[in-house]
Computed example of a mutant assay.
Amino acid sequence: MSAGDWRVQAQDGTHHVIDGPVRMRANNMRMLLAAALAGAGITYGPSFVFDPYVADGRLIVLMPDLVTAELAIQAVYPTNRYVPLKLRSFVDHLAIELEAALS
């Protein structure tokens, strides 16, 4: 369902590219999750989105021996000598929440 050209790595270190027909493209993991839950196809995404549905059996992992590359999540804002407290607090909150979701 999500864009092709998935790059994965096997346990022996070999790299593979999985490509195929794409029925749906989205840059929103919640949308891809809803489509997968509705039976529209396969997708991959972050564990903090999909793991609860794998744990309760609504989704299955098709290739458990393969791992995808880690993707960075970045907060981008203009550089400045003064970073507003609201922005600093928001970035700190994101870091805490994402760390909790990934552990």
Rank of each mutant, 00 (worst) to 15 (best):
Y82N: 11
D65H: 14
A3M: 07
A40S: 09
P64Y: 12
P46V: 13
L37D: 04
S89C: 07
L87V: 12
A26D: 14
T43I: 07
R81V: 06
N80D: 15
P21R: 05
P52K: 14
G39D: 04
I60Y: 08
L33F: 08
I60G: 11
L32V: 02
R25K: 13
G13I: 04
P21H: 02
R23L: 08
G57C: 10
R58D: 09
M31H: 12
P84T: 15
D12Q: 03
A75I: 01
A55N: 12
L33N: 09
R23P: 07
L85R: 15
P52N: 14
L87H: 09
K86H: 14
L37I: 06
N27R: 08
P21S: 08
E70W: 09
A100H: 00
L33E: 11
G4D: 12
V49W: 03
P21A: 11
R88P: 09
Y53I: 07
F48H: 13
Y53V: 08
A35M: 11
N28P: 01
H93K: 11
I73E: 00
L59P: 01
T79C: 12
S89I: 05
R88S: 15
M1H: 06
A101N: 12
A35F: 00
Q9C: 00
M24S: 05
Q9K: 01
R58L: 08
T68W: 03
L94F: 03
R7L: 06
R23K: 03
V54W: 10
L59H: 09
A26P: 00
R81C: 03
I60E: 15
R25S: 13
Y82G: 04
T68P: 05
S2F: 04
Q9A: 09
D92M: 12
Q74A: 04
I96E: 12
T79G: 11
I60S: 14
L66Q: 00
A36K: 07
S103R: 00
R81H: 06
T14F: 10
E97C: 11
V54P: 07
F50R: 07
A10E: 11
G20T: 02
L62F: 03
Q9R: 00
L37Q: 02
S2L: 05
A40P: 01
Y44D: 06
N28C: 06
Y77A: 15
G4A: 13
D65L: 10
V83L: 15
V8P: 07
M63P: 01
D56R: 06
V76W: 10
V91P: 04
A34S: 08
Q74K: 11
D19M: 09
D65N: 14
G45P: 10
I42W: 13
P46M: 15
T43C: 14
N27E: 11
V22N: 02
V61S: 14
V91Y: 07
D19E: 13
Y77L: 14
L87K: 11
D12S: 01
A34R: 10
G4H: 03
N27I: 05
E97R: 10
G20C: 00
A36L: 10
A40T: 02
V91W: 09
K86D: 14
F48V: 12
N80R: 15
V76C: 15
L102E: 08
M1Y: 00
S2H: 04
Q11F: 00
A69F: 05
